[in-house]
């Protein structure tokens, strides 16, 4: 019976219990206030029913103490809920350091996903149990929204920028993946499945089937194909900055300010190089807008991420 007619989705991520907790607390609070007012209104309606047509009740103008009382109580409760919900929000939107990175491109009407090892999927996502996963997402066309109810996560997928979400699956199984932002004709078919697997099964799945080119290798190929390497030389002596060890660092910008080198910054630097120019370099890089696909940009990013600084060798 309970399985045929569930009242809430499965709890399959580390967030699920926390979100359900705040949900039930809010339900209890709401039921309390709804019951309080309803019961009072019904009691008053019965008890003070008009007895004769010319009955005039006492005219009570108000009561300042009561007004303060029922202003203060909702205020305190509302602020308390705000704090609780904001703490939860920060938890859900702040990924830990050791996440598995995966990439998502939404388009009318499918989800294209790629694992760093190269495996590609459409409308399906395989993830290992108990390991934090972070998705970097963008759209090729209109707005979409990546939603896994069993994980209690959702994030809009926006053309022209990167958004991200993370989760840690806690239960083996297959769960709904929905597009939650209306995107046109087949919006309700832009759905799929998320499969949570034992880490060992996940590894087997990753390496099984057709041999795939890892994303960073594909990115390296693009890096050479578009001749990026002629300027972004490894030794830092090219016309563009060296990209080695750059990911995650903060760089000073031409004209003041600084920027953290993250996925969004790399993407912007490929598509709109002149906007945030690294200090000391000239705005000579051409734009690659319209030339590299969203997936190609993601592969380039995976490549840049893989360019780790050599360990304590070159001390200048």
């Amino acid at each position: 019976m309970w399985t045929d007619f569930p009242l809430f989705p499965e709890q399959a991520s580390s967030f699920a219990l926390k979100v359900d907790g705040i949900y039930f607390a809010t339900v209890l609070l709401s039921v309390f206030f709804a019951a309080l007012v309803s019961v009072l209104v019904i009691i008053f309606a019965i008890k003070y029913r008009r007895k004769s047509p010319d009955e005039i009740p006492r005219q009570i103008a108000g009561h300042i103490g009561l007004e303060i009382f029922w202003t203060a109580i909702p205020l305190v409760l509302a602020l308390g809920m705000f704090v609780w919900s904001t703490v939860l929000y920060f938890h859900i939107t702040t990924p830990p350091a050791n996440t598995l990175e995966m990439y998502v491109v939404g388009k009318q009407w499918m989800w294209k996903l790629q694992h760093p090892e190269g495996k590609r999927e459409i409308n399906e996502l395989h993830v290992p149990l108990g390991q934090p996963v972070r998705l970097t997402m963008t759209s090729e066309d209109v707005l979409h929204s990546f939603y896994i109810p069993a994980f209690r996560v959702k994030k809009d997928v926006v053309p022209g920028r990167y958004t991200s979400l993370w989760f840690e699956a806690t239960k083996i199984g297959s769960y709904h993946l929905f597009c939650a932002e209306y995107c046109g004709t087949e919006h309700s078919r832009m759905i799929g499945k998320v499969h949570v697997m034992e880490p060992q099964d996940y590894q087997n799945w990753l390496t099984g089937g057709v041999a795939n080119e890892p994303m960073e290798v594909a990115g390296e190929r693009l890096f050479e194909q578009y001749a990026c390497h002629t300027c972004h030389k490894v030794d830092g002596k090219g016309r563009g900055p060296s990209l080695v060890g750059l990911y995650g660092k903060s760089v000073g910008l031409e004209g003041g300010g600084s920027a953290v080198v993250n996925e969004a910054y790399i993407r912007e630097s490929i598509l709109n190089p002149a906007v945030k120019l690294v200090a000391g370099y000239k705005p000579i890089m051409p734009t690659f807008k319209g030339q590299i696909s969203e997936e190609g940009v993601m592969q380039l990013i995976a490549y840049v991420k893989s360019l780790k600084a050599p360990e304590l060798t070159s001390v200048e």
């Binding site: 979100v19 705040i22 709401s30 206030f33 859900i92 929204s145 996560v153 932002e181």
Partner: peptide, 24 residues
């Protein structure tokens, strides 16, 4: 009756942590 339910369920949606799940 209806306004009570409508108003109180607004608390679920102003709640950022919960709105992630409930939005759309």
């Amino acid at each position: 009756g209806l306004f009570l339910v409508g108003g109180l369920t607004g608390l679920f949606l102003s709640n950022m942590g919960l709105d992630i799940h409930l939005h759309d």
